[in-house]
Design a protein around this nucleic acid. Sequence first.
DNA 1: GCGACAG
DNA 2: ATCTTGTCGC
Length: 231
Amino acid sequence: MPSLFPHPLHDWNLTPTQAVALQRELACRIERRDRIGEVRRIAGVDIGFEQGGEVTRAAVVVLDYSSLEMIDQVVSRVATCMPYIPGLLSFREVPAALQAFAELPSELRSEVDLLMVDGHGIAHPRRMGVAAHLGLWLDLPSLGVAKKRLTGRHGDVADERGAWTPLMDGEETLGVVMRSRQGVKPIFVSPGHRLSVDTATQWALACLGRYKLPEPTRLADRLASRRGQKS
DNA sequence: GCGACAG
DNA sequence: ATCTTGTCGC
């Protein structure tokens, strides 16, 4: 198990002001350069809610990279700890995601080489979206795939599968806006931890199947949402 | 004060 | 995110 932060990063009961302060601190630890080895296992993560929001349901799926087939899945439920506040999504979702991760067979959990999370990575006001936060916590290369923009500006994206245009904030490139499928609204891809924008983009493209969302996130989405039926 | 605002 | 039926289009 990875680990360790010198501070009480384990305390998820923070006030919005404290959470923002923690994000600023953690953002310095995010590695934007590639630090990733051979990829054989990719984990997809997404969160859903039940009981009118009182229960948070986290889904983690592990896929084999070459076939993009799911080889295992975990769905766990925990009490919701925080309301949704734009910019502070990770404080609401990461606890549940970690619980689901902990429930993965240990041997499989240790084989995960890359994390794909539903939400943004560094394409965040303080560069600490949920994908960055989770990647940092688990010390794994990570990228975020979101369906809507949170911050940054971009031009039009050609209506052709695989087309993309950079997501910018001034001179800083935060990620890309990608047409994952023709005729649908584009997705927002950004690196989380230990990944460059280019590499994050390549992995998003590599994981594209016949749907709008890349396979890891799509499969996790189905389980976290209500459709994936039972568990 | 007025918008914008991941899931 | 979630609440919700049918409907338009490939």
